[in-house]
Amino acid sequence: MDARDTIPILIETSAATDGCFQNTRPLLHEIAHALRRLQLEGVATTLDLSAIPFGPGDERQLIDFLGKGEVSAKLEAMGESLIWESRYAGVWIVEHRSTSSERLAFQLEITKLPAILASQPEDIAESLLMLREALESPQADGTLV
């Protein structure tokens, strides 16, 4: 058992006033503006959270506030990426991590679907080739088809 488990501390919830350094509110306004733009003009916005001056707890408060919506996805490419829609439809949270689980990027995308989720044309072309190749070349062990 870790010694830290013995710490007799009750971590207050993210609603605790100490967690609020007042840096999330303006961001939420910005998100609202971006949503409006998405709704009216169809223009997507990406906010790089690493460029936002968060105090300790601010980020947690923001993420808690945004919550989890219906969709979440995990990407395995050069490390893990987690992508989920917040409870505010159109507001996506995209977190890229490296192979050693270090955070590479943390972004809010205000869009219908984050681009990273879509299959990339080059990959599609490549997979078409591969599939054709597979279909055309007879399998040695005959397991396929």
């Binding site: 490419a77 050069m78 995209v94 990027a105 990273i116 990339q120 990959d123």
Partner: peptide
């Protein structure tokens, strides 16, 4: 590395 991975790499690089 896939194209999607490359895109991720670019996103991280842009952020950096």
């Amino acid at each position: 590395v896939s194209r999607r991975g490359f895109l991720k790499f670019c996103t991280a690089t842009a952020s950096m």
